[in-house]
Design a protein around this nucleic acid. Structure first.
Lengths: 104, 104
DNA sequence: GCCATTCATCAATGAATCTTGATGTGGATG
DNA sequence: CATCCACATCAAGATTCATTGATGAATGGC
């Protein structure tokens, strides 16, 4: 069980939820506090907190406390990491493209 | 519930499983029949079939029957689609980066 | 036609995950 | 200290998903 694939699977899982993608969509314009996100996304505070935690644990988001409020933002490295992951899924050079025919 | 996000969530979900990522990893070198994949990945035929179906339904893989064998390969458009999805997660221009401070 | 092979599908179980509602925690205010 | 607010955490239920084992469908050889 390759370690990279385990890591990749976790990243993709964090992105496999609509609510979490909505959170990311909102954070594309910059950091937001939880209360703003609660207003924007029709969801409960408890559920939002759960999804934020999921994204944070994966490394997609970072948080920052300021007084009573907690601000979340996209981790700068997150997009690079994702593009690296996508790169690891790309077909390799066509030189090996012949079928091995081990089934015959 | 934006339709794009629904679609993106489905794609990411398809990639959120280690076995499915292993399948993709194998197919990076070109198409393979199911029997080869069964040998390579320590898994049962039934389970492999389930995961192949998941990937195919999402559009990541295509299949092709040839006699008794079914060959799976990476869909050419899949990687482009993924890069498009990743692009839709990127932070927007920094001009809007000011915090709205609606919480005050 | 009969049988073996390759793969898909189905039903059932168990595990992981999402969701909800209640409670807990830490900071700010008076 | 008492209280309110923003947010996190917890326990319980609901749902979705992965896995297994058995059966079915299509192909090809005899």
């Amino acid at each position: 069980m390759p370690k990279d694939l385990t890591r990749a699977a976790r990243w993709f899982h964090a992105l496999s939820d609509e609510t979490r993608l909505q959170i990311i969509e909102r954070l594309r314009d910059g950091e937001q506090c939880v209360c703003d996100l609660t207003d924007m996304l029709a969801t409960t505070q408890s559920l939002l907190s759960f999804h934020l935690k999921t994204l944070k644990e994966t490394g997609i988001l970072t948080d920052r406390r300021e007084g009573r409020w907690v601000y979340y933002s996209l981790s700068p490295e997150a997009i690079e990491e994702l593009e690296r992951l996508i790169g690891s899924l790309k077909p390799r050079g066509r030189g090996l493209r012949v079928s091995l025919k081990r089934c015959d």
